[in-house]
Structures are given as structure tokens and as C-alpha cells.
């Protein structure tokens, strides 16, 4: 997300004659900042629940889906982990996102679909609940952890240092990114233009290049 938006936002700003300031953090962290009154124009989240919650609190417009992603098991190359069941082996060091951050919640959704014994064995290997996806990837890149649940786009952003193990489709959670405009935005016209760009324009292309999937449908969530 960071790489894609950092690439497409400046040209968008130049075209619109505006300066686009980007702030990246765990989606839940950003939502908490908005609840504390952070002045923003557009909020983009790695799930649809947080924008929906902010909408119902009267802080955000109705959100629209702008991308999809795939939760994968990321391992370092080379690795002895080749499947979901390998995560149950004793001594595997696994990192998850914390339950409040989307990639952590998605991983828990997936693990909840496993048989109880398998699930317990996997949870027994969890060494850390990281506050955002970057620090989860960092634990893998530094060799501190053997495997972690992150997004396919994160593995791609690691430039070949990580391998992605795809999960069985029936277990895979639906990862949908949604964005909305802050009710208190001081530049609502620009915010709408950016949202449009996120769904159909330069930013959408940058997202696809970064390994994100297209939005599930082009209608409102």
C-alpha cells in the first residue's frame, strides 16, 4: 500500500495542483487517530469494517471498496515450511498481526476455520502479535521469525526475499480494502477526486502493479 500510494499520489497532486500528504500505519491505529480528531481527508483501510464503523460514528462518508488482496503465509527463502500444516510443527516461530489490526484479524478468521487441534498447535507457535504489517514483515526479513500471515502484496514488496504460500481457497478470508472521505474534510472535492483515482485511475494501476487485486465490484460496498 505504502509503495503504491507513495508512487501515484505525488503525480495526482501535481495534476490537481495540490499537495497530497500521506500517513501510513495499521488501519486500526489510523482509525483511532481519526477518533481522536486527526484532520484527514481520505481514510483507506485494509478492511471494510473500520471504515463502516467510522461511517456509523458520523466521521466518514460511505466507504467504497478500491482493492482486494490475498492473505498468504510468508516465509523466508529457503524455508522448511511448505504448507499450512507445517505451521503446527514444534519450534516454528510464527508471527501474526495483533487482533485489532486487519491482517491479524484475517489470520484469526482463517485459523478459526481449522480443526481445533490444528488451530491450537498453530497458536502455540505464535511468538508475537505485531501492531502493523510492516513490523510483521520485518520480523521475517531479519530472521527472527520463520513464518507469518501477511498479504501477497507484502511478499511482492520484499523483492524476492520472501516466498508466499497460497492458502486453500475455502479457508482464505476475503481481504477487501475500502476508503471513505472524512465528513470534516476541508477539501472534499479533492478527496472525491482522489477516491476516484484510487478506484479507476493512476493509483488503481499502481496498486495492481504492487500486487493488489481489483475491487470486488465497481459498486458501493
Amino acid at each position: 500500500m505504502k509503495e503504491a500510494l507513495s508512487r501515484c499520489a505525488p503525480p495526482f497532486g501535481r495534476e490537481e495542483g495540490a499537495n497530497v500528504a500521506l500517513a501510513f500505519a495499521g488501519s486500526d491505529e489510523l482509525a483511532a487517530q481519526i477518533r481522536q480528531g486527526a484532520s484527514i481527508d481520505v481514510y483507506a483501510s485494509a478492511n471494510t469494517q473500520l471504515p463502516r464503523a467510522l461511517h456509523s460514528e458520523g466521521r466518514l462518508s460511505r466507504s467504497v471498496a478500491f482493492a482486494t488482496n490475498e492473505l498468504v503465509i510468508a516465509t523466508r527463502r529457503p524455508s522448511s515450511i511448505h504448507s499450512l500444516t507445517d505451521l503446527t510443527k514444534k519450534g516454528v516461530r510464527l508471527v501474526l498481526g495483533s487482533p485489532s489490526v486487519p491482517h491479524g484479524a484475517y489470520a484469526r478468521t482463517l485459523l478459526a476455520r481449522l480443526p481445533a487441534a490444528t488451530r491450537r498447535a498453530v497458536f502455540a507457535n505464535v511468538r508475537s502479535n505485531e501492531p502493523d504489517v510492516k513490523s510483521t514483515v520485518g520480523k521475517l526479513l531479519t530472521g527472527a521469525a520463520d513464518a507469518g500471515f501477511v498479504y501477497a502484496s507484502d511478499v511482492r514488496a520484499a523483492h524476492g526475499k520472501l516466498a508466499a504460500l497460497r492458502l486453500p481457497p475455502r479457508l482464505r478470508p476475503r481481504v477487501v480494502y475500502a476508503a471513505g472521505i472524512a465528513w470534516r474534510s476541508r477539501a472534499p472535492r479533492l478527496a472525491r477526486a482522489f477516491l476516484r483515482d484510487l478506484r479507476f485511475g493512476r493509483c488503481q494501476r499502481a496498486l495492481r502493479q504492487a500486487g493488489f487485486g481489483p475491487p470486488p465490484n465497481r459498486n458501493k460496498q
Binding site: D28, E29, R127, N129, E130, P131, G138, K139
Partner: peptide
């Protein structure tokens, strides 16, 4: 957070707990 990670009861310190709670 970078060196020890965050796991309740084994590495999650009060400061990290604050950071995590801030969001939830």
C-alpha cells in the same frame, strides 16, 4: 517491539500494551 515483539505474558510490556490498546 522490534527486538522482542509483542506477546501477552511473555514480551508485551506496558508501553506496548498502551500502543495496542490505543487502537482497540
Amino acid at each position: 517491539l522490534m527486538f522482542a515483539g509483542s506477546l501477552r505474558g511473555s514480551t508485551q510490556t506496558a508501553a506496548i500494551a498502551i500502543y495496542e490498546r490505543f487502537a482497540s
